[in-house]
Design a protein around this nucleic acid. Structure first.
Length: 429
RNA sequence: GGAGGGAUGGCAGAGCGGACGAUUGCGGCAGCCUUGAAAGCUGCUGGGCCCCUCGUGGGUCCCGCGGGUUCGAAUCCCGCUCCCUCCGCCA
């Protein structure tokens, strides 16, 4: 949520920032009006409340002194004020709730450093690494779904039988490598990041806190009986770990990593990039996340990206980092970079990680605060997150880039410690 | 799933209708004392919202959450949630 006080004090700045995202600004106008009304009502209510409190004190004194008649007169007066107060309070609460409902759908303000643009096509490439995407041999340009089925490691048909389209069963070395990728990612980041294994199901308010709800309800799996949501990413529970708590500045930044399954209904993307592992309803991911002060945030964003980038580099994949433009950013994002890996078999860059700085947007929703050292009061945290490694697309690229002429797949050396001695995915006998 | 008990500030724990945003202890911060530290002593020490003459200023709300009773609620009543203990079931 963006700051209603900023909307109040500098509406033009808010509007121009949201304008860069191509947002409709009428909700902001509405908020300004409702907020003004709400504050007027609240002020009036507070004044009446003050009078009621003063009167009831007086009543207490009079009762003790035995002046029943005087006391009853004041009680009548107070009762009348009480009715007025209740009416004002109800009005004020209604206005405040309206403001909240609007603000829940208003996206974050983009960083001044985020590039302007209307859509995906406007995202500048920041840098590129790994093998040249144009130099892949013919035997590497075979889509992973073909290789995966030939090698018996990706069972799409049976995945569908079990759970429907866009669900996969990994088998044999497929399952082993998928798990190895997660372990590798966790081990590579364990120097600074605390490993957490959070719940995969969370309450509604947790999803609201990170921005998934209410706007993107259709994208999430919901367990009706228990009113719990399947997490679309470990970002959701990790961000909320310190919800409603006040941290000490000395403890910041806090860094966490978590392996988790991720569940996404992919409601808006039917039929788009859905072959093979490109888009699935359930996948495994290692997420990196940081809670910081505003000053620390940019460094942590760079750090998380460096780590994600290093990992795909180690795996021998062609990769690049793109700077997400204002028109393509997620609702909660302040600044966002995507790490993409080249898939020679599909002939596409695949989004493998999105490293985002959410400024105080999630912190305000989730009530994440810290106490600045040596100062009174509290400040909102900044939150940052990014995939350390997401299995399906990295595995897809891996199965293509490391495919040999005979159809087997060589597995990059960093994975070897996790493969029970194997170094390749061999052809079936 | 069944039966009981409970939810108060960073923590522990009082208060059970009238000056209680809350006694006290611990912890934390500052000062005194000390060569330094400890001990001791003194003071300070929650959060949200709003207002102004921007001040060690003022008002209001928050004792799990939501309602109710009352002139007045942390205290009484109702509903909900969560936690704990025991039983049942279970990886």
């Amino acid at each position: 949520m963006i700051d209603v006080r900023l909307i109040r004090s500098d509406p033009d700045a808010v509007k121009s920032a949201l304008g860069r995202r191509g947002e409709d600004l009428t909700p902001i106008e509405r908020v300004i009006e409702l907020d003004r009304r709400q504050r007027d009502l609240t002020r009036e209510r507070d004044e009446i409340r003050h009078q009621v409190k003063a009167l009831s004190k007086e009543v207490g004194g009079l009762r003790k002194a035995g002046e029943t008649e005087r006391a009853e007169a004041l009680q009548a007066e107070s009762r009348a004020l009480g009715e007025r107060e209740a009416a004002l309070a109800a009005e004020a609460d209604a206005r405040a709730e309206e403001v909240r409902q609007i603000l829940l759908f208003v996206p974050n303000l983009p960083s001044p450093d985020a590039p302007d643009g209307a859509s995906e096509g406007d995202n500048p490439v920041l840098r590129q690494g790994g093998p040249d995407p144009d130099n892949y041999a013919e035997h590497q340009q075979v889509p992973h779904w073909e290789t995966g089925e030939t090698l018996g490691i990706l069972d799409f048909e049976r995945g569908v039988k079990l759970a429907g389209s866009m669900f996969v069963a990994y088998r044999g070395m497929g399952a082993t490598v998928a798990r190895a990728l997660c372990q590798l990612a966790l081990d590579r980041n364990a120097d600074l990041y605390e490993e957490v294994r959070p719940p995969s199901l969370v309450r509604t308010e947790i999803m609201v806190g990170t921005g998934q709800l209410p706007k993107f309800q259709e994208d999430a799996y919901h367990l009706e009986r228990d009113d719990l949501w399947a997490v679309p990413t470990a970002e959701v529970p990790l961000t909320s770990l310190y919800r409603d708590e006040i941290l000490d500045e000395a403890d910041l930044p806090m860094r966490f990593m978590a392996y988790s399954p991720c569940f996404r209904r992919e409601a808006g993307s039917a039929g788009r990039d859905t072959r093979g592992l490109l888009r699935v309803h359930e996948f495994d991911k290692v997420e990196l996340l940081a809670l910081t002060t505003p000053v620390q945030a940019p460094d942590l964003q760079a750090e998380i990206m460096d780590r994600a980038e290093a990992l795909v580099g180690e795996l021998g994949l062609s990769h690049r980092v793109i700077d997400i433009c204002t028109g393509d950013m997620g609702i909660a994002h302040h600044r966002s970079w995507d790490l993409e890996v080249w898939s020679p078999g599909v002939g596409q860059w695949l989004e493998a990680s999105s490293v985002s700085w959410l400024s105080d947007y999630q912190a305000r929703r989730a009530n994440l605060r810290y106490r600045p050292a040596g100062a009174k009061g509290t400040e909102l945290l900044h939150t940052l997150n990014g995939s350390g490694l997401a299995v399906p697309r990295v595995l897809a690229a891996l199965l293509e880039v490391h495919r040999r002429e005979d159809g087997s797949v060589a597995l990059p050396e960093p994975l070897h410690p996790y493969l029970r001695g194997a170094t390749e995915i061999a052809l079936p006998a």
